[in-house]
Amino acid sequence: MRDWDVYELREIPRADYLIVGMPDVGLVGLIASTYLARTLGAEMVAYMDSPHLPPVLLYHEARPHPVMRVHRFSTGERSALLLVSEVAIGVRGIHSFARFVVEWGLSKGVERLLLLGGVPTPQRMKLEKPAVYGAGVTREDVELIEKSGFNLFREGFVSGPYALILKECYKRSAKGIALLAESFLNYPDPGAAAAVLAALDPLLGLKVSVEPLLEQEEEIRARLRETMKRTMEAMREAGKAYEFAVPAMYM
């Protein structure tokens, strides 16, 4: 078995975007992408597998349910592939994962990768509405972030799998934006996930009603406690603490 494999369940037509939702800071990517797939009824068109994934097989509605799924949906003229990962990848697997995801996405003709996630802030408890930052790769990405009205992520670190995916995009001059909402570091944060989903509107012309997500906020937080705990272990391993360090350029 190679490091990463994709199993396509049917022929996948070209898509404009590859949206990625991984469990990370505040589980923002996981909550947002799962909610998006469910709300849009997006069909599962492929799944990914790797020896780097934990040895678990989920069951859903009496059938095996891959932990790393690819869904597809369209919004008017735009189409997107949506990668949802239920599990965090250990540090030994994230480099090969980033390469694989970018290569696969580009092979499907995607114009841009969109990574959904959180940026931890100690002030999160006091924020009613978290701000969304856009970390872009190319000049076009930066222009799109500014045009869409997000805060441009100008200085600081992105770490973990999203950092490596952005770096792969950079190496290939491919377009990629990480949409990062201010969030709790180590508590599941559906409020931040709702902020990220709202940010998809100017990019995809996709209005997602986030009220049901906010209504279930406490239920989601209670149920995802164990996933958050496991994700924290992977984040520690992947050097998430660097996000709080002062980069040498400021000294």
């Binding site: 100690p122 570091l185 180590n186 599941p188 906020e217 239920e219 937080r221 209670a222 406690r225 705990k229």
Partner: peptide, 23 residues
Amino acid sequence: EVEPLYEVVDAGDKVLVRVDLPK
């Protein structure tokens, strides 16, 4: 009973204990 998610922050002159208690 379940153990909630929590963090302990050393804030210099004080210690902050933050606990997630949904529901």
